[in-house]
Amino acid sequence: MSIQHFRVALIPFFAAFCLPVFAHPETLVKVKDAEDQLGARVGYIELDLNSGKILESFRPEERFPMMSTFKVLLCGAVLSRVDAGQEQLGRRIHYSQNDLVEYSPVTEKHLTDGMTVRELCSAAITMSDNTAANLLLTTIGGPKELTAFLHNMGDHVTRLDRWEPELNEAIPNDERDTTMPAAMATTLRKLLTGELLTLASRQQLIDWMEADKVAGPLLRSALPAGWFIADKSGAGERGSRGIIAALGPDGKPSRIVVIYTTGSQATMDERNRQIAEIGASLIKHW
């Protein structure tokens, strides 16, 4: 067993022997301040990774656009098919120029040779490549099948209805392509620590998230040296922004954090800054 596999296998073990965790309302004060600064709703939840206990939450059962955070769930569904012998990570998928959609920095470079399922998941999570996500959605049967996968996990809230990039439209009061912070946090925890996926697939999923290259201005910008984070960000229309993450000190994750916002007129930089400040408060009061 590799060191990384050992780390993920012992996530519940280490967490069980940690000192009790206590909620700190100071972080919620910052979440509410972010709402004021952005002029928009902000949803927040913080779960203990081992027990699933909610440590703090704000608007945990209000719907927010998922945006690209759905790509972690998508690759979880792909990995479940791999575990069941219905898919192979090494299978190569070929596609054409007509398949390319807006923001496809990886797939646009491989029109000639195609990409493997493993490479597509890596591109979808680490670079948020939209064509990679659409190609992977095709392998599982489309958005409705991802929703069905989530329902089978016990998540009857999260739903995907459309493809990239239309799913980022974020129309107010439109339930399409949305989740709730509580539902997303619980589902992410199941994917990373539950028995739904094999140990190898859980490790692969967290490795992809740990290698995320496009979430630097968010929670990662607030992390002290030595902290662990595996995350996936999302951005959408109407001032929408979000991030889902597993993080913790001492090089291992111990909490799940989900943050979503929508309806702001603020710039992307300002949305990023507010999420980073929430992260800084979380870490300060850990």
Results as ranks from 00 to 15, higher is better:
P25V: 15
E26N: 14
T27M: 05
D33P: 03
E35K: 00
E35A: 06
Q37E: 14
Q37F: 14
R41A: 09
V42G: 02
G43K: 00
Y44V: 06
L49P: 05
N50F: 11
I54E: 09
E56Y: 05
F58L: 09
P65A: 07
K71F: 01
L74C: 05
L74N: 02
R81A: 10
V82T: 09
D83L: 03
A84S: 13
A84G: 13
I93G: 03
I93R: 03
H94C: 08
H94Q: 11
Q97Y: 12
E102W: 08
M115D: 04
L120M: 09
C121G: 05
S122D: 15
S122W: 11
A124W: 01
T126F: 01
M127H: 08
S128Q: 01
S128E: 00
A133T: 10
I140F: 10
G141M: 06
G142P: 00
L146E: 02
A148Y: 11
A148C: 11
A148H: 12
D155Q: 00
H156Q: 13
T158W: 01
D161T: 06
D161G: 01
D161K: 02
R162Y: 02
R162T: 08
W163A: 09
E164A: 00
E175R: 11
R176S: 08
D177N: 01
T179N: 04
T186C: 14
L188P: 01
K190Y: 15
G194D: 14
E195Q: 15
E195I: 08
S201Q: 07
S201T: 08
S201M: 11
R202I: 08
I206K: 10
K213V: 13
V214F: 04
V214H: 05
A215T: 07
A215D: 04
L218Q: 02
L219C: 01
S221V: 12
L223T: 12
A225S: 13
F228P: 01
G234Y: 01
G234L: 00
G236P: 02
E237I: 09
E237W: 13
R238N: 15
G239Q: 01
S240R: 00
I244F: 04
A245S: 11
A245Y: 03
A246Y: 12
P249L: 07
D250I: 11
D250C: 15
D250P: 09
G251W: 08
K252V: 12
V258L: 06
V258W: 03
T261C: 13
G263W: 05
S264A: 10
D269L: 11
H285V: 08
